[in-house]
Design a protein around this nucleic acid. Structure first.
Length: 212
DNA sequence: GCGACAG
DNA sequence: ATCTTGTCGC
C-alpha cells in the first residue's frame, strides 16, 4: 500500500527535480522523433514500446519493446513513479539516436511541474514533450493556451494537450507536435501505443495457453 | 456514500 | 490503463 507519508516524500522529490527542468530549446534541428507508451499485462508487468520516426515523412526508423516489473499503482499526479522506469528501459534498447522524445502524459502541466514527460526527460537529460489525451483536472483552455494554477503551462494541438517535458520551448513543442499529427495522437506515440498493446496482448495469450 | 482522476 | 461485439463507414 501507498501511505500519504510516502506520497508526501514523492511529491517533495518531484518539486525538487522540477527545478532541473529547462523550458527553453536545448536541441538542434529535429530530424528524428521517438514516441513511447506503456501497456499493462497480467498483474505486475508493464510492456513498454518505443518507436523512432523520421520527422519529415513520419516513416518508422526503429522500434523496440521491453517488459518490466510494476512496483507502483496509478495515482494521479504520480504517474512518473509508475511508468518512467519502463519507458527508460525501452529507450535504452534503441540503437538509433533521436532528437526529441514524445511521451504519453503531461510534462510541466502538473501540480508540481514534474509530470511523466519531465520525469523521463530530466532523468535521461534529453529533450522531451508531454502529450496528454485528457486535460488535467483544474486546467482551462482559452484560445488553445492551457492555463493551470495561474500560469500558461501548455497548448492544445488538435485534440491533445501538449506541454514542455524538458529542454524544448512550448512554442517548439507546438510546432513539432503539429507536424506529427495524422490522427488524434501524434504518430510516434500512436505507433508505440499499438506496439505496446499488441505485445501485452500476446503475452496474455501465451500465459493463458499454459493453463489449457 | 458519490464522483472524479494525466495513464 | 483494462474488461469487451458488433457495427458504421471509407
Amino acid at each position: 500500500m501507498i501511505s500519504y507519508r510516502l506520497l508526501d516524500e514523492l511529491a517533495n522529490i518531484q518539486s525538487n527535480l522540477s527545478k532541473k527542468v529547462i523550458r527553453k530549446n536545448y536541441l538542434d534541428e529535429v530530424n528524428t522523433v521517438a514516441g513511447v507508451d506503456v501497456s499493462f499485462s497480467v498483474n505486475n508487468f508493464a510492456v513498454s514500446a518505443a518507436v523512432i520516426v523520421d520527422f519529415n515523412d513520419l516513416k518508422i526508423i526503429e522500434k523496440k519493446t521491453e517488459i518490466t516489473n510494476l512496483f507502483f499503482p496509478y495515482i494521479s499526479g504520480f504517474l512518473g513513479f509508475r511508468e518512467a522506469d519502463a519507458i527508460i528501459s525501452v529507450i535504452k534498447k534503441l540503437k538509433n539516436n533521436f532528437d526529441v522524445l514524445v511521451v504519453d502524459g503531461n510534462g510541466i502541466l502538473h501540480p508540481r511541474r514534474f509530470g511523466l514527460a519531465s520525469h523521463v526527460g530530466v532523468l535521461l537529460d534529453i529533450p522531451s514533450i508531454g502529450v496528454a489525451k485528457k486535460l488535467i483536472r483544474g486546467a482551462k483552455v482559452k484560445n488553445n493556451k492551457i492555463f493551470y494554477q495561474g500560469e500558461v503551462l501548455g497548448v492544445k494541438v488538435g485534440d491533445v494537450y501538449v506541454s514542455v517535458g524538458h529542454k524544448v520551448s512550448l512554442k517548439t513543442c507546438e510546432q513539432i507536435i503539429s507536424k506529427l499529427i495524422r490522427y488524434k495522437v501524434p504518430e510516434p506515440v500512436r505507433l508505440a501505443h499499438i506496439l505496446a498493446t499488441n505485445t501485452a496482448k500476446n503475452l496474455k495469450v501465451k500465459k493463458r495457453n499454459i493453463y489449457i
